[in-house]
């Protein structure tokens, strides 16, 4: 059996079929635990039907192993957003749209928040990069 640290490959895909032992919901439920009966009795909730950062990193490994490095990077960024609440995601997205942030500092504050509150260094770096480019291209002006 492959250890937890070994990288997954195309042979492990789809995980739900080939490696069901590795697939867990956010509260640790296995796919077999997620049944209609358990949804009806309330033991499975919407939270159990959500993807985990682990699953996204596993899918990133598979993407990289099949030659899709940029897709892997997206999954890795996504893994960092799994624990970011919906409202925060909406707020950050809105600030990244043109003319929403008044200055680079507003975006850099988001980067700091991502790094410190959500342990999301990749996303933080990504937003920092946006701040630099927006500065160079003059995007910090109001559109409405």
């Amino acid at each position: 059996m492959t250890g937890a640290n070994d990288k997954l490959t195309a042979a492990d895909y789809p995980l739900a079929e080939k490696r069901p032992d590795m697939v867990r919901g956010r509260r640790g439920k296995s796919l077999d635990d997620i049944t209609l009966a358990s949804v009806i009795d309330g033991s499975v909730t919407l939270e159990d039907l959500s993807i985990t950062d682990t699953a996204l990193r596993q899918q990133a490994d598979i993407a990289r192993a099949t030659g899709r490095a940029t897709l892997a990077q997206n999954f890795e960024r996504a893994a960092e957003l799994v624990n970011v609440p919906e409202a925060a995601i909406m707020r950050m997205y809105e600030l990244l749209r043109p003319g929403r942030a008044a200055s680079a500092e507003e975006l850099l504050a988001v980067a700091t928040e991502l790094r410190q509150a959500y342990s999301a260094p990749r996303m933080a770096e990504f937003v920092t990069e946006a701040a630099e480019v927006y500065t160079r291209r003059g995007l910090f002006k109001r559109r409405f």
Binding site: A78, L96, F126, E129, V133
Partner: peptide
């Protein structure tokens, strides 16, 4: 960047 953020947000859900 905003669109790539959205892409990651969808994957995160």
């Amino acid at each position: 960047w905003s669109k790539a953020f959205l892409a990651a947000a969808y994957a995160s859900r």
